[in-house]
Nucleic acid binder design. Structure first.
Length: 424
RNA sequence: GGAGAGGUGCCGGAGUGGACGAACGGGGCGGUCUCGAAAACCGCUGUGGGCCUUGCGCCCACCGUGGGUUCGAAUCCCACCCUCUCCGCCA
């Protein structure tokens, strides 16, 4: 949520931000119009309430019954008028909040301009694309051949875009989760195990609602929403809290499954485990002092990169341009890992500085040590990493001519010492 | 799912229609005392919004949430949510 005061005071700045994203700047004028209406009505409503409060205090002290009855009658009339006016005010406020809720965050100043993902900037590439003296296979061939990936039975159970990990495949994913969490803990993050279903309010707070309703699963009868990312419950963790300044920064990490409706055109990304309705992810999250969020972003990026480096995977850092930024983000780096069998860069992580956008929606503040009003914290989130795509990169990178796959060294302790996945 | 109890400020806890934004206690902050500290005593201590004569101002709202009754609601009524206790069911 953007600051209404900012929109009021610097509408041109906000319009410029929306324009950079490819959004309609006219939204700003709509908001300003509603805000003006709201304040005009509010002024009237508050004057009437003040009048009613004042007279109501006089009434019990009035001794003349006629004068008293007259005042009560007058206040009854005032009350009816007030109620009607309050309804109009409410309607305007609802529309104003609705408009604000649909407005994305503004890009940071140093985000490259661009229309869509083609204008993203590759910041650096780390590692060399591996070479093979045989034709590397895609994971959708490797996995089933190794007996660790079962697409047919996944489909039988749940339909397209579902699969079953089997044997060492399931164990490898579990090893990755365990290893990543341990790594993030060493990096200073506190592990959290949140609910995988949360209330609508929490989904709103993180910015997935109202805009991405179509991408979310929820219970038809109760207020339960399946988390599309751990970012959602982690944002909600400190909802409606006022933190002490000395408590900041807070670093959290969590493993959760993620549930997403993927209403994509049939045929895109359907092969393999790249995109499913359910996938696992280990997430990093920070609540920080506003002055520090820029450097906290770089630090989080470094933490995410370390996972790929330690796994020995080839990756590149991509900075998203203004047109490709997510709804809540003001600056984002994506990490893309090279998958030699599929022959493409896979987005395995997205690390974002959200500024106070989520904090405002979730009402998360801190009390300045120096005194004064509570201020909104800044929040950051980053995947560290998405599991299926990491698995893809491992299988495809470490495959050998005979179809076996070497397990990265850091994972072996989590695999009971196993060094190689071999075809059954 | 059934029965009961309850949701008040940073915390505990009063308050059942009119000066209650909220007693009292604790905590925190400031001060007095002290070589210093403790104790004691005194004072201060919510959030959001609106207005302009930007005053250390005025006004409005907030006692789980949303409605209702009333001139007036923390207090009465209705619905919902949450917490706790007991019973049932259950990994």
């Amino acid at each position: 949520m953007l600051d209404l005061n900012l929109i009021r005071r610097q509408p041109d700045l906000v319009k410029e931000g929306l324009r950079k994203r490819g959004e309609d700047p006219a939204l700003v004028d709509q908001v300003l119009e509603l805000d003006a209406q709201r304040r005009a009505l509010l002024k009237q409503v508050e004057a009437m309430r003040a009048e009613r409060n004042r007279v109501s205090k006089e009434i019990p002290r009035m001794t003349d019954p006629d004068a008293r009855a007259a005042k009560i009658a007058a206040m009854r009339t005032l009350g009816d008028e007030l109620k009607a006016l309050e309804q109009r005010l409410r309607a305007v406020e609802d529309r104003l909040h609705e408009q604000l809720a649909w407005m994305p965050n503004l890009p940071a100043d140093d985000v490259p301009l661009g229309a869509d993902e083609h204008d993203n900037v590759v910041v650096r590439t780390v590692g060399e694309k591996p070479t093979f003296d045989f034709t590397p296979q895609p994971h959708w061939d490797l996995g089933p051949a190794l007996g660790i990936l079962d697409f047919d039975r996944g489909v039988k159970l749940s339909g397209s875009r579902f699969y079953v990990l089997r044997g060492a495949g399931a164990r490898l994913q579990r090893a990755l989760i365990q290893w990543m969490l341990d790594l993030h803990i060493r990096q200073g993050y506190v592990e959290q195990y949140p609910p995988f279903m949360v209330r609508e309010r929490v989904v709103f707070a993180s910015g997935q609602l109202p805009k991405f309703r179509d991408n979310l699963y929820h219970d038809a009868e109760e207020d339960f929403w399946w988390v599309p990312t751990a970012e959602v419950p982690l944002t909600g963790l400190h909802m409606d809290e006022i933190l002490a300044e000395e408590d900041l920064p807070l670093y959290y990490t969590a493993y959760t499954p993620c549930f997403r409706r993927e209403k994509m055109s049939a045929g895109k990304d359907v092969r393999g485990i790249k995109r499913g309705h359910q996938f696992d992810k280990v997430e990093m999250y920070k609540f920080v002092h506003p002055d520090t969020s820029d450097r906290e972003l770089e630090a989080m990026l470094a933490d995410a990169e370390e996972t790929l480096r330690l796994l020995g995977l080839t990756y590149r850092v991509v900075q998203l341009c203004t047109g490709d930024l997510g709804f809540a983000a003001r600056k984002t780096y994506d990490l893309e890992v090279w998958a030699p069998g599929s022959g493409e860069w896979l987005e395995v992580s997205s690390v974002s500085n959200v500024g106070d956008f989520q904090a405002r929606r979730a009402n998360i503040r801190y009390r300045p040590k120096a005194g004064g009003r509570p201020r909104f914290v800044h929040t950051l989130n980053g995947s560290g990493l998405g599991l299926p795509r990491t698995l893809i990169a491992i299988l495809e990178t470490y495959q050998q001519a005979d179809g076996s796959v070497v397990i990265p060294e850091v994972l072996r302790p989590y695999m009971g010492g196993m060094e190689v996945l071999r075809p059954a």
